[in-house]
């Protein structure tokens, strides 16, 4: 039977190998290494801080934040969930994971919001950006773990870089969408009074797009959390490592404990960031509603991981 490969075979794998192994790595490894510096600084600071803060103090502060932003129900849930994590003996791992996730989300925000704003201002840039974001979202993360290890080595920071690649698209997309969806006549009104571009962005477009941008932040955060196990493959620690180790040793209990920790952390962060995007006038979530949401939320998180 004839097939096209009888005429021509394309050695794609060899090409990529020679591109990455023989050209990119020897020439640019120092450059990529230097990119790690800011991430390392933020991560080390945050990890050291979170692990140094006493468990009870941290729990109280996070519960207070939850209470102020998302209401009483979420605050009570936060107290119970964090106490439970401490009781199953995963507190330090949870803090490490949290510092990883916060670092990733911080860099996603710093990169993603300006890129989203630029995309909202230029149709051409948006047209270029869209396929890039599509690739970032669809390409299996294992594919880019290999070059990341070759360029950055193993450890926490390469794990965070992989997480940033995976979690960046939603905040870019939703910043772009949010700013484009600001009502045309409001933009015209701002223009007609003589706003500069910066004044318009700051006073009108950004505040009005904030809900959508916060939804993007929430999605980015959830994606970052779903990467913690995969990041553990290349040497990141925390709850992901607990799950990964459990997998390696067929220790179903350990893997479950780590998984529960991730889910609880996800629920707390999800509820808090979701409520940040809601208008201040309608912020009331009862404890019952929180528990009622619990299962649908856990399912959603799992669906994203799959």
């Amino acid at each position: 039977m004839f097939s096209p490969s009888d005429i021509l075979t394309i050695p794609l794998a060899d090409w990529v190998n020679s591109l990455v192994r023989d050209w990119l790595v020897p020439n640019f490894r120092p450059f990529f290494r230097s990119l790690q510096w800011p991430i390392t600084q933020v991560l080390n600071g945050l990890d050291g801080f979170l692990n140094a803060v006493p468990m009870l103090l941290f729990t109280a502060v996070l519960a207070f934040i939850a209470w102020r932003t998302a209401g009483r129900g979420v605050a009570i849930f936060t107290l119970i969930a964090l106490a439970f994590i401490d009781m199953i003996g995963l507190w330090p791992e949870t803090m490490t994971t949290l510092s990883m996730v916060i670092t990733s989300v911080l860099f996603c925000t710093v990169i993603g919001i300006p890129v989203g704003i630029l995309a909202a201002g230029s149709d051409r840039f948006q047209a270029v950006l869209r396929p890039v974001l599509d690739i970032m979202q669809t390409i299996p993360s294992f594919v880019y773990l290999v070059p990341i290890v070759m360029l950055f080595g193993v450890g926490m920071v390469p794990g965070i870089i992989a997480t940033i690649i995976f979690a960046l698209p939603p905040i870019v997309r939703l910043t772009n969408l949010g700013i484009r969806n600001v009502r045309e006549d409001l933009v015209e009104a701002a223009q007609s009074f003589g706003s500069t571009r910066w004044q318009m962005l700051w006073d009108v477009q950004f505040p009005l797009a904030l809900r959508t941008i916060m939804a993007g932040l929430n999605q980015t955060l959830m994606l970052a959390l779903s990467m913690v196990v995969i990041a553990a493959l290349i040497g990141a620690g925390g709850l992901g490592l607990t799950v990964f180790t459990g997998l390696g040793r067929l220790d179903v209990g350990g893997a479950t404990a780590g998984g529960v920790g991730i889910v609880l952390l996800a629920i707390i962060l999800d509820r808090i960031t979701q409520s940040l995007g809601e208008p201040a006038r309608m912020k009331k979530t009862s404890l019952r509603a929180t528990f009622a949401n619990l299962f649908s939320s856990a399912r959603a998180t799992r669906a994203k991981e799959a």
């Binding site: 009502r183 006549d185 409001l186 015209e188 009104a189 701002a190 223009q191 007609s192 009074f193 003589g194 500069t196 006073d203 009108v204 505040p207 009005l208």
Partner: peptide, 21 residues
């Protein structure tokens, strides 16, 4: 143009175009 808009012309819109925030 910006100076003219700031000092000389104001506009009122059909659907009010008030900033909701």
């Amino acid at each position: 143009l910006r100076d003219v808009r700031r000092s000389k012309i104001a506009m009122v819109f059909q659907h009010f175009a008030l900033f909701p925030h």
